[in-house]
Amino acid sequence: MAKGLEVLLLDDEPIVGKRLKPALAKIGCNVEVFEDAKKALERIDQKEFDIVVTDIRMDEIDGLQVLEHVRQSSQRTKVIMITGYAMMAVAREAMEKGAFDFIAKPFKPDDLRKIIAKAAKALGSTIQFENSETDGS
């Protein structure tokens, strides 16, 4: 388990945060959940997170803007994009702008945990977890 891997999770659908927060806490992440992108950006300005997980399609501020904001404030932070409207062009744009990874909804908590583990490794940390669900990918 990684100690104190700081994760900000932003999705305007409350169910996403409700479901993913305990799933990430299980592997030792300290998760702060936001449904409002503006508030999430304010928090990003206050604190350097290890990982930011953000939805792409949101009102007012979209995930790509969040990604750009994070990139300006911290080069170290890994940004993981999640979206229910995955398309090749958006995926390429996100990667070009510096996203660490990109995953399409719906996904299983283990799918995100795998990406978090990969991001932790890139940050020089380690996360170990056993797959609690069958990997359907």
């Binding site: 995926a91 390429r92 990667m95 070009e96 510096g98 996203a99 990874d101 990109f102 399409a104 799918d111």
Partner: peptide
């Protein structure tokens, strides 16, 4: 070598 052509969870799933 551009980042946009690097594999990611989503693109690997598309291929699978």
């Amino acid at each position: 070598s551009y980042r946009k052509f690097q594999s990611m969870t989503y693109s690997i799933k598309c291929l699978r």
